[in-house]
Design a protein around this nucleic acid. Sequence first.
DNA 1: GTCTATATCACGATAGAC
DNA 2: GTCTATCGTGATATAGAC
Lengths: 195, 195
Amino acid sequence: MNARERLVESARALLWERGYVGTSPKTIQQRADAGQGSMYHHFAGKEDLAEAAIRRTAGELRAAADALLSGPGTAIDRVTAYLRRERDVLRGCPIGRLTQDPDVMVTPALRAPLEETFGWLRARLAAVVREGVDRGELRPTLDPAATAAAIVATLQGGYVLARAAGTTEPFDQAVGGILALLGAHTVRPRPKEGH
Amino acid sequence: MNARERLVESARALLWERGYVGTSPKTIQQRADAGQGSMYHHFAGKEDLAEAAIRRTAGELRAAADALLSGPGTAIDRVTAYLRRERDVLRGCPIGRLTQDPDVMVTPALRAPLEETFGWLRARLAAVVREGVDRGELRPTLDPAATAAAIVATLQGGYVLARAAGTTEPFDQAVGGILALLGAHTVRPRPKEGH
DNA sequence: GTCTATATCACGATAGAC
DNA sequence: GTCTATCGTGATATAGAC
């Protein structure tokens, strides 16, 4: 792995752990085992390196989500697979967390990937819900866009609750909660609804 | 308003806007129109002042939530009132955002109020859901804790999506989405379920 | 490409006068 | 209580040698 590559990976890890305001070029360099000269040769500065790091992370996140949401099974199966996939819950979402970073939000080049990523994700989930409705798996009263937003929000909020609690428990509860609510909107095999 | 008070209010605003790592004592002093000597007279340092600010914000948040959740109406009415109350959506949650701050998370005195606040909020919402079930307003299949976690998570995640999008739209969609899902779990007047 | 030296400024806090 | 002076450290970057 060359220096440029190491710098991007180092920046990705630190942006995830500490955000943009909380990360200094020096720290990035040390973790990458690269000198200052090296970093400023490959990148115009902190912002430029951060942009490369964020774009790569966003790309990976999108690919991982797409793989599960395009998988086999019913709409609910796929949403469940996506929500329940293995996650580093206590570390939070590497993209969602940047949404709270003041310097990221005022820098268009850094903010753009966040907007694109969540825009894409909400649209992708809405499409899955719409498919479910079209196939007769989900009730037609479900608003795909609103349902998709609620699902993504539960995920992002689940991270917040887990970090606040210091445990993954509230994350798992939130995911279980929304899936239970969604499950009742299933058309055919409404499992054990009490009555 | 005396200097001490101005410092706490200044810190509250800046912690909301920029987080703990993104806020310097100097900035707090300038906004409070107070000198360094003044700040270090009233507080032991940045951390001490931040703790006072966070605790006050957490207290207000809790009071506001309790007022709505203890109000009149059915369980769904109260949850709806809470979720739909006026909010500065694009500014995000002043407590939830601190969950992404690396220095807050490793400082017990600063982290504790977050844990307490969300712990209380989840329990309070779970109690409302439980009441709804007991009163026959909500289906007994609903798990109060899981449902409560999903509701709070939707709120916190809604902020994330709104900030990423630069619009309040996804927040409103997420809230509408979860309320629609929850509405179908209403016992009596199941409105227009299609079939 | 990578290194070291240097520059400028901000951070977070302390000291002691008033 | 509030002020100014000062301290040591780190942030972010540039310059120029190798």
